[in-house]
Structure formats: structure tokens, C-alpha cells
Design a protein around this nucleic acid. Structure first.
Lengths: 215, 215
DNA sequence: TAGATTGTTAATCGATTAACAATC
DNA sequence: TAGATTGTTAATCGATTAACAATC
């Protein structure tokens, strides 16, 4: 079997999760006037290991200068490029409840490469309305529209019991990456990328640690 | 140095994160009539390793029966106990924007051991109102009230630039566990439990994987 | 030059997975 | 009994951390 000349290893998921944190730190807490920064300084602020920071940054292809550090502006640029924050990807959101509405209001998502271009629901009360500038349509129109517009990302913010069905519909409509805000574990083909945003998993960690502490 | 007779190892965080998933699967997708279930069946449905499921369940102290499996009702009960879902812990939420409002509407949180008993903000428009049955007060009143009510959990849903200050206020008011929905990395004493719910970290993983796929 | 910082290779650590004896 | 499933110990895997040579 022939191997690729440049078979790049998959980037570890923990690294991917830390990259936006670096950008946030660099753009919001490092003075705009500072041109360079060392990994030990980043590490200290974010409570990480300096070596880890260097390894993380390395995946973006950027290099630093011994005794000087990394150029802040270049870093921000390189991470953005690496994560695809430049070319906006259109997304559909299904489920305009409390959380769905909140996400529609997150203008910030655009800075992170994703733009919600349409929202869907089944309830008469919301279908036909516009929320935070995004039209809400009946979910029956989702599949055709997704195909026609070549949508790749689907965001699921429906009640848990409807999640599986919505996910199936999305996949059949050609959506290949799903951001799942329900606690339901989706059974989908291997080829579909699923990223779970599980409130309850997160809360369980917090709650258990607190229990241990107070015990 | 004397060691505890029963020095129980800390439960791995990945395990804590999976426990709520088991409960959700068992209560919603396993027929109520089914009395027993094997770890291989759970594993298959959730795309996990059966051994891993057994190890996860073991931390709750529950045991199964060879050739029979685990009693579904007991499992749900044991996990709930372990995660402290029985005795409700009161929480304060600061930042009644899109996301904060959505969380106030999440009645489900109560099933997961946390009850938001008051919300805070600085904006005149919302201070004094009531959202989803929870009173919104000025953030200046938060510290005293938290001390008086013995609040342990704080939820931060303010804009990123206000996060550090709110977190400090919470800690000074005796709050020792913070659920942080902002992308800001909080610099707090070691003793404070911080659980980050980072939308952008999650989105970065999804977005990057999609990029790799389409490339 | 001297010394701080990068970039890389090696060691460690912890979680996942495999192997298998115990058991109902 | 036979065999499916548990529960535990050992092996593997991958991420983190340590060590250190290269470099500006």
C-alpha cells in the first residue's frame, strides 16, 4: 500500500480545543502593543505547560524565534487560518427554543468560521418569524434547502426526544457535520462528524467535584 | 504521613462525563419493561467499549450479575446518587443575555442536581424583572445574598470581558464552584472548582474536522 | 559571548482496551 | 453442566511533561 509523501498525523482533539483559548487570550488580554510573547508566559496565564503550548502552536505551522518568542499577530493569524476561521461555512439550526434562540443571537460565531443562515422548527408560533435576523422555516423545508445550498453543518437544539430524527434528516440532506446540543447519543454513519455540546456532562463534572469537596 | 484507610482514587473526568449519558440512554431508549441490561448492549448503543462501561459503572458502587447484567432501575438510581442528583444544590446565575436566559428556561437542570435560585445583571432593562420564574437583581446584591444563602455554585453567562470580575466577586462571596460559559480562562485560587463550557472550543473541533474532510 | 527561548526527542502518566478467571 | 457476562489485572495507546540540544 502506497503511503502519502506527507501523511500528516491527525491533530489531537485536546489541542484543537485549546487553540481558540490562545486566540482569546492573545487578542483580549495581551496588550495590542506587545509584538512578541513567549510560550512560558502564555502557559502561566492559562495554567498550562509551556512545552504543551509550543506543541499546540506547532500544528499551525508557525515558528517562533529563540530568545524572542512568537509574534502575537502572526500567531492569531496562523491559528485562525488553521481552524478555518476565514472562509465562513454556512450552517442550519434546527430547534428554536431557548437555546436555539440564544445561538441565533451569538453574532460571535461568525468570527469562529460558522454562519447560521437559516433556522427550522415545527411549532406554528415560531415558523415564519425572524429571530436575530435569521428566518425560521418549517423543518419540512430543511432537506431540500440544505441540498440546494450545499449546507455542510447542522446544529441541533431540539428537545432530546426529537434529536435522532432531526439528525437523520440532516444526514440524508447531505449535512456531514453536526453540532449536537442534546444529551442524546446519535447513531449515525462513521462518515458524519458529530460534536456533542453536552451541558449535562459538564454539569456532572462540576457537581461531583463539589460534592467531593464538601464531603 | 498517615494515609486514610480508604483513600479512594479520584474518578477520571471522562468517566464523570459519560455517566449522564448512560442515564439518558437507560431512561429514554431502554424500554421501561426491560429489567436488566448488559454492558455490551449499552456499549454498542453508545459506541463505547464494554469494559469501559463496566469500569465506569463500577465507580458508583453498583454491581451486576454474571449472565444477567445490571438492573436498569438500580443503575439509574446508583448513578444519580453518585452524581448528587438527589439533594438539589442552589446556584446563582450572572449575566441574563441570550444564553443566560436560555439556561433559566432549562427546567431540566433540576433533574441534574442544580437549581438556579436567582439571577443577576447590571442592565436596567432586565434588573427587577423575572425570567422563567427567577428574579433578576442587580449584580451588586449578589455577594451579600450568596453569603447569606450559603450558595456554592455560580454560573457565568456574561460577555467575556466581564467574566474575570464576576468570577472574583463570586469567589469572595464564598462560591466555590463556577460553571463558566465564557471563553475566558479564569485565574482563581486552586481551591475553586471551575468547569468551562466552551462553545468555541467545541466549534473549533467540529470546524477543523470538517475542513480536513472536505480538503 | 551568554543566556533565554525554541523545537524535538525521550520519559511519564493516565485512560482505554485486551485478556481472562470468577460466577451465576 | 455450559456458556454468557461480570469484574479485575495486564497491555496498549495517546497525551502530557521532562530533558536537552539548537539557535538567535
Amino acid at each position: 500500500m502506497t503511503e502519502n509523501v506527507k501523511e500528516s498525523k491527525a491533530v489531537p482533539e485536546p489541542t484543537l480545543r485549546r487553540l481558540p483559548t490562545y486566540v482569546h487570550y492573545l487578542t483580549h488580554r495581551v496588550k495590542k502593543t506587545r509584538q512578541f510573547i513567549s510560550t512560558s508566559e502564555i502557559a502561566k496565564a492559562l495554567k498550562l505547560d509551556p512545552t504543551q503550548v509550543r506543541k499546540d502552536l506547532a500544528v499551525t505551522g508557525i515558528t517562533g524565534t529563540p530568545r524572542v518568542g512568537y509574534c502575537v499577530a502572526e500567531l492569531v493569524e496562523a491559528i485562525g487560518n488553521f481552524l478555518g476561521w476565514n472562509n465562513l461555512t454556512d450552517a442550519f439550526l434546527v430547534g428554536v427554543g431557548n437555546l436555539g434562540t440564544a445561538l441565533l443571537g451569538y453574532q460571535r460565531l461568525k468570527q469562529y468560521g460558522v454562519k447560521i443562515v437559516a433556522a427550522f422548527d415545527t411549532r406554528e408560533k415560531v415558523v415564519g418569524t425572524e429571530i436575530h435576523g435569521v428566518s425560521v422555516m418549517h423543518v419540512d423545508k430543511m432537506a431540500n434547502l440544505a441540498k440546494r445550498m450545499g449546507i455542510h453543518i447542522g446544529i441541533i437544539t431540539v428537545p432530546a426526544q426529537a434529536a435522532a430524527e432531526v439528525a437523520d434528516k440532516m444526514v440524508r440532506a447531505g449535512i456531514c457535520a453536526i453540532w449536537n446540543f442534546t444529551p442524546t447519543s446519535l447513531e449515525l454513519p462513521e462518515s458524519v462528524i458529530v460534536q456533542n455540546m453536552d451541558l449535562y456532562a459538564s454539569l456532572a463534572v462540576l457537581s461531583r467535584k463539589l460534592h467531593e469537596r464538601l464531603k
